[in-house]
Write a protein that binds this DNA or RNA. Structure first.
Lengths: 332, 332
DNA sequence: CTGAAAGCGCTAACAT
DNA sequence: ATGTTAGCGCTTTCAG
């Protein structure tokens, strides 16, 4: 029932290899080409990607590994990447890994069996070994908004998280805050953000209390819990930095639970400039990542490698932008 | 390079068909099986899904069409569906269609060339023809949180949008509102929600003004614009129903722009009970869709059809739940 | 410029 | 229980 290249060939009165040639637009006589084309139309022929991939062609699908597609920042990236990839004829198969090593490994293995053409790791990952393995076997890979582990020579597009962390802390300090806490995920990009924060504190001779750097899973609830806990401390911070907008929302809710008025009683900042940061009240001071440009560059680099043009690996670091909104103010 | 079934066969000292048999665990002698298994391990053999699919097996990947993966409600569903599918060994390739007929058609055609095993249309779609076509050719399909067009006999799992619309309007009416507007997308599920709203109005002998039912694209900005416009009207509503949380956020922002205090000056409701509705301030009165149960049922039904068990089509209608929060109050 | 034929990695009769 | 062989639908030498 499925109609194949043979049907087209027969109808057009040529051989299958001629059909194949027009499919891949190689040299074919004008007449033959026309006959083939119209046969294809009449039969509504659609070539099988499976068969063509089996002979060494691409599948035109790429594996998109991310911590959690339900995370708004990730989802926004997914949309951008999807659109850019689709413009070039590629589809995305998404896999949420929850930062779990086994999941990453499992998904990569599965997708390789399905012969995806390459991988994008977006928003962070845990298992550097799977990446190294991929690299070793020359499978195209790129990290997007995910900090490359230092000794991993892999294509990367990321915002400068260190600068982002620095700027947001610096801003808070300029507003008179001296006692600033951080709530962050256990992810490499958060680590960079924290490093930036520490640097800023140090540059202003401020003391960083270790208990004020809290590691949190990715849930709003956990951030809220941690916030309530630290607010009950004898010497609570006057500002809390959330390592992403989602966590900042958790902080917001926690603070509200403690009857604090934001930002008067507590300044709160996020990171990523997601929809969330614009919708909550007060709107969040946060750090913008230029998602569009990052995603389009990532897709370009990956596809260039897949399509065999060019091949020099690169790390692209884009600059973040501080977005000041209403969740922060001068300390009283 | 790539190691195949031949390599395994050779190493194990058996024929490829024996290897194939253990792969698909069919009857194989205990000894042979062991030899094959250990050969596979040593060689780190991974069967090619392409090749196996080419001979008529499944690809174990399913097409997931949705309006926009960046939409929080959709993204939450995507996560659930992904997890349920993955438990059964399936992957998802996502395609954002923006409710565009051509995109739906194009993606479906592309994915069929890639031999996906079935399709999920989540959160709405436009082009009923592509669905009908799929149905006609016996491709497994299911609609998830997408209203089936009346004469489309397709598997469906959806919340009862009519009831949802009715309940939220009814609640508003019980709070004394008589002048209630609606901002909705041009999607079938919104139409059902609107129908519910109209029914509630009618049941209370309230007049529905046509200008108070506004069609909006899916953006926060557009909802905001429409809100500001209607608020400038001579006889503005005392409550506005957003057909989903995203639109409700737009309404919220628009109202705030007009210096209204929510909910005292204007009650606002959403739909979907997304993260957004819990994070904004005031928190949104909305309607909960039992996403988890919907998604797991949808996956079950689709995979049952794919795997050829059973085959009776069904429409599952789950009940929505009104969630009363702080964006609504009695009319003054 | 066009066609015949081998082969991609695997499955499924059919033999043995 | 195991092996042989003919495809699945397409690409790609290699002849003609």
């Amino acid at each position: 029932m499925k109609i194949t290249i043979y049907d087209v060939a027969e109808k057009a009165g040529v051989s299958i290899s001629t059909v194949s040639k027009v499919l891949n637009n190689q040299q074919v006589g004008k007449k033959s080409k026309e006959k083939v084309l119209s046969a294809m139309n009449e039969l509504k022929y659609k070539p099988s990607v499976l068969a063509s991939a089996l002979t060494g062609k691409r599948t035109s699908t790429i594996g998109f590994l991310l911590p959690d597609i339900a995370n708004p920042f990730i989802a926004e990236m997914a949309r951008q990447v999807e659109d850019r990839a689709h413009e070039r004829g590629y589809n995305l198969v998404i896999c949420s890994t929850d930062f779990r090593s086994e999941k990453e490994e499992h998904y990569v293995s599965l997708l390789r069996q399905k012969s995806v053409d390459g991988f994008i790791f977006a928003g962070g990952f845990k298992n550097r070994n799977v990446v190294m393995e991929l690299l070793k076997e020359n499978v195209p890979v790129i990290l997007l908004a995910a900090e490359p582990h230092p000794n991993l020579t892999v294509n990367t597009v990321t915002v400068d998280n260190f600068v982002g962390g620095y700027e947001i802390a610096n801003y808070l300090i300029s507003q008179g805050h001296k006692n600033i806490a951080v709530i962050a995920e256990d992810a490499t990009s958060s680590q960079e953000r924290i490093r930036g924060y520490k640097q800023a504190m140090q540059d202003h001779s401020l003391f960083v209390q270790d208990e004020h750097i809290m590691i949190c899973n990715s849930s709003v609830e956990h951030a809220q819990k941690l916030t309530e806990a630290i607010l009950d401390t004898p010497n609570p911070p006057t500002a809390i930095i959330g390592a992403n907008d989602l966590l900042a929302i958790g902080i917001l809710i926690g603070a509200r639970e403690k009857n604090l008025v934001i930002p008067q009683d507590l300044s709160i900042t996020g990171f990523d400039n997601t929809l969330l940061s614009k919708c909550c009240d007060p709107t969040l001071t946060t750090v913008d990542q230029p998602i569009q440009s990052m995603c389009s560059q990532a897709v370009n680099i990956l596809l260039a490698e897949i399509e065999g043009k060019h091949n020099t690996r690169q790390k692209i670091l884009v600059l973040p932008k501080l977005i000041i909104r209403n969740s922060t103010c001068e300390v009283y």
